[in-house]
Amino acid sequence: MIISLLILTVATAVAGFFAWRREPASLGRAFAFSTDQGLRLALRLPFSLVAASCFAELVPDGMTVSIMGPDTGLKGILLASLIGGLLPGGPIVSFPIAILLARDGAGGPQVIALITGWSVYAVNRVIAYELPIMGTRFVALRLLASSFVPPVSGILAGLLAGVIGWSIALQ
């Protein structure tokens, strides 16, 4: 958590410097945008966290572990990819769900497959934006061409974490 804070602080300072050097007024616009987004988030996030925490309580004990625990392997990764694709809404819904599933015993590669499945399959986004704008054939082509991405990202991340000895489990 401290390291994340450090990375974010440095990155923000660097981005701020470049934005300022390019056009000093952009700092004000960036700040106004962030404040507006932050206000929206400050209103919604508490409710989405309460909802996600309550739904986590409703999940029967051991169900997360048996469906997408660290020992579920490829089957768990595939299932997590599909469940991720069905998660509705934006990051305000999916990330709290992902972190609560992780704390409830989901494995690291499975959580990564879940997040990537939500990003790539994104049933919600496909219906709301992609189908009307890009058309059926494009959506079919994209889904077919990127169908391998969520499970493969989970598998590769699990392998890399094992090789470099970093933990991607979040309990």
């Binding site: 958590m1 390291i3 994340s4 990375i7 974010l8 990155a11 990051p91 990330f95 709290p96 992902a98 972190i99 992780a102 690291g108 959580v111 990564i112 997040i115 990537t116 991405v149 990202s153 590769l156 991340a157 392998l159 890399l160 974490a161 470099i164 970093w166 933990s167 991607i168 979040l170």
Partner: peptide, 20 residues
């Protein structure tokens, strides 16, 4: 930077992003 780093931590993000 807005969601994943704060919620899931830098080790998780690093491993996921590099492999993706």
């Amino acid at each position: 930077v807005t969601w994943e780093l704060p919620l899931l931590g830098h080790e998780f993000v690093f491993v996921r992003v590099i492999t993706s």
